[in-house]
């Protein structure tokens, strides 16, 4: 293990730790947000805002209610959605199905 590797891994780990720290700080806010239910009206907006970034919108009737959960969580990772946006979009998709 050479010094350059230590430097690089140190930088990367620092970046990751800073990220984790910032996010851990936000966990209190997140915990509050986590308790929030999905909202249909916000879901319409989040769906219209985000689901056309890479592809055309999918019809809510294309999938079953349970399938929309995994699909939108998959898109949470792909598109960098927040947890609240995820729950809102699921509520809209299920409510329109």
């Amino acid at each position: 293990m050479n010094t350059q590797w230590l430097k690089i891994s140190g930088s990367v780990l620092s970046a990751l730790l800073i990220t984790a720290g910032l996010l851990a700080t936000g966990t209190g806010v997140a915990a509050e947000a986590d308790s929030k239910k999905g909202d249909f009206t916000r879901g319409v907006q989040a769906w219209a805002d985000n689901c056309t970034r890479c592809h055309d919108v999918r019809d809510p009737k294309e999938l079953r209610d349970d399938q929309w959960i995994t699909t939108v969580y998959h898109m949470r990772i792909r598109a960098g959605l927040t947890g609240q946006q995820t729950r809102d979009i699921i509520t809209f998709m299920q409510g329109s199905n």
């Binding site: 990220t19 996010l23 936000g26 806010v29 997140a30 915990a31 949470r76 927040t82």
Partner: peptide, 9 residues
């Protein structure tokens, strides 16, 4: 994927 909070996985 482990969803840690609303803002990080």
């Amino acid at each position: 994927d482990y969803f840690i909070s609303d803002y990080v996985a």
